[in-house]
Structure formats: C-alpha cells, structure tokens
Design a protein around this nucleic acid. Structure first.
Lengths: 194, 194
DNA sequence: CTGGTATTAGTACCAAGTTCTAATACTAAA
DNA sequence: TTTAGTATTAGAACTTGGTACTAATACCAG
C-alpha cells in the first residue's frame, strides 16, 4: 500500500511483525509490506529469520520444555539432591528472573516458602503429609541468580497426634537467608508399616 | 521389527506414541511399527489424528495461550478483587488440579501461602514490600475446585522499624481454611510521601 | 473359493518453503 | 550520460511432509 521508506525500515518492521506473530507466512508479509515474496525472503535471509514452520516448531518446542519443567516444578519446588526419609533432606533452587520482583530484583517470599514446604513434605516417609502450621523468617533478601540451598531436619515426632516437627533453613553462599519451623500432619507414625 | 499383534493394538500404541511426542513424522512411525507409511496414514485417518505440522501448530498455539496466563499468575497468586491500600485487600484463587497432591487431591500448602503472601505484599502502599516473618496455620484441607477467598487486614504499624503487621485469613464457603500473620518490611512509613 | 478387511504401492497434487540464476529498476557517482 | 552497485522481482527446480485417490496384493474366515 504505502511506499516503504527504506529497506532498513522494512526490515525493522519485519522483525517486529514476526516477533509478535510468528505464525505469519511470507505471502502475508509480502502483501502487508507491498513488496514481492522474494524480497521478504531476501530480508529473512539477511536477518537470519527462519521460515514459518521452523518458527512454529520453535514455539512448540519451547512449550514442550516448559511442560516438562512445569510438572516437577509444580510437584516439588527446587531439586532434591539428598534425602534420608524421616531424618533430613537437602534441595537446591536456582532463583531466576521470574521469581523476583521486577522493581528491586528480590525474590518473592512465597518461592522460598514453597521450596521449604516442598522439602518438608518430601522428607516425610508417608503417602500423606500436610502442613499444619509454620513459622518462617525471611532473614536476608535473595536475588535472581542466587542458588538457594535448603536443608530440612526432622526435629521431633508425636505419634499420638500424628505430627512431625521439621526445621528448615536456606542459605545462599553459606549465609542463612530463610529459616522456618514446620508442623506436619501424617497418617502413619514413624516406623509403622501400615 | 516385531510383528504387530492387531491393528487395534498398533493404533493404541500410535495414539500413545504421538501423544507423548507430537513431533514424530509418519516415516518414523512407519519404521517404528514396521509397517508402511500408508498404513500409518490410514491409521491417522481413522483415529482423526492430524498431520505433523498441524500437531506442532497446536502445541505452539497452546503455548501462546499459556504465555498470557503464566505471567500474571507469577506476578500475583490469586486475583485481587478489592483493595484499600494500607488497610485491607481481598483476593480469590481457584484451586485447580495442578495445585493439589495427586494422591489425595489436597492443595499443596505453598499455594495457599503464596496467595496470602502476594496479598500481603499488594496491600502495602510502597514500592518495596518484603516479607520478614510469618506464622501460618493450615486449618482445613483445600481441594481442587474450591474457590479460596483470602482477606488481608493491616493490623499495625511500626514506622521506626519500617514494619507493617498484617493478618490474613482464607476461607472456602465461609469456612476458614488458612490463617496467618505477616510481618512486612517497607521502605516508607504510612502517610509518608517520600 | 469367495469376501471382506488390512496392508502396501504408486501417482498427482499442495503449502511453504530453499537455492539458484537472471532480469530489471533506481540511484548516485564519475 | 554512462556506468556501477544495490535493491527488487521473476522464474524454475527441488524439498518436506504431507492429502487424496486408485489399484494391487495379502490374509483370514466362512
């Protein structure tokens, strides 16, 4: 329609257009910019923009990663690297950009809580473990890029009330950033087979 | 390789294979099952399984939806429906399958904590609000399908220590399921402009 | 032996490209 | 003005991963 300014300008717009809608074909782009399909192809070559199908595949693949990641991430926050059931457990959690406040880059409290809580659940050797009560302290801000190492230690047991008491503390570079006590409910007492 | 039992069996496996890896071509499937490409195509016809590119496009499209959903979900857990800064705030959170333990359908504690924590952060009228300490009680199990209504009320203030104290309680059908106290850090005192 | 289902083969065609060659067009400097 | 150099367009051949359709063959049961 409207005459394109320069090649540069067209290519700038091309990047923009494809970025926010990777599903567009060269034909549509050619029509959009009032140039030939070949010109669009040349532009893509120069800009190293892959063809439609590759772009779609990329989006799909990214989705797939997420899907695979999302499940364990949802299951247990942080990666458990050592565990001795009903005794202690250790997990690490790499803080990423998506876990922090944009404003100040400090991790949202609930992610640290989630890691601790997940670990408290995991350390209990029981089909059913629920958090009943918990007191936590956020000692020091955690930033994106930090690797949080969290340790849960089973402190006590009350088989009559079906309770397990767990202490958790998280560190970054050996400095405590978070600590908490968790009172957990379980269906079976320690040592009971059924 | 191994002779296929029946057509039924092959089609069952076909569905399974494609479901957990939509990126597979008919050629690969034919090799996998030791049949011709045409047979695979016939199978897909009968089973109404779309071709590779359509499958990939579907996955990609789903990603696009997710992207929109994932961001706000990460920003604030639960949807804030009413807020009076430095006074009180209300949010709702619909518990889905992905928030509960598969085993027993009970919501993981950290999701309830996250909703409460997010709300405590949100109610504070400050650029920077961080959780310092919190005591929480999980009163009653929450199930998938439940709508959790969470209310945060600012209880007190200590301008010298830059602290705000917030009570939070969550209900499902007017029954309390979670309550907590949050001690929050903020940079500015209430009423201060800068 | 005759049917019906299952499988395989082969052809034509499509979308959305890549690659390559070649012809124009446009513009600016010699 | 001519010429060089960039930009654009056109066209043909080939590629992937298919669809649609026809036809041949295989296999198994009554």
């Amino acid at each position: 329609m409207k005459m394109k300014r320069t090649k540069k300008e067209r290519q700038r717009l091309l990047i923009e257009t494809i970025t926010d809608n990777p599903f567009v074909t060269d034909d549509q782009l050619a029509a959009e910019f009032g140039v030939s399909v070949q010109t669009i192809r040349l532009d893509r070559m120069e800009l190293a923009i892959p063809e439609l199908r590759e772009r779609i595949k990329d989006v799909a693949a990214k989705n797939y990663e997420n899907e695979v990641k999302a499940l364990p991430l949802d299951e247990v926050i942080g990666e458990i690297i050592d565990i001795e059931l009903d005794k202690r457990a250790l997990s690490i959690f790499d803080v990423k950009e998506e876990h922090v406040f944009q404003r100040n880059g400090i991790a949202r409290g609930h992610h640290l809580f989630a890691q601790a809580n997940s670990l408290a659940v995991a350390v209990i050797n029981d089909d059913l473990a629920l958090t009943v009560k918990s007191n936590v302290v956020f000692v020091k801000p955690v930033k994106a890029g930090d690797r949080v190492v969290t340790k849960a230690v089973v402190r006590g047991q009350n088989n009559d009330k079906n309770r397990t008491y767990i202490d958790v503390h998280s560190t970054v570079d050996n400095e405590v950033v978070f600590k908490g006590e968790f009172e957990m409910f379980r269906t079976k007492g320690v040592g009971e087979t059924k």
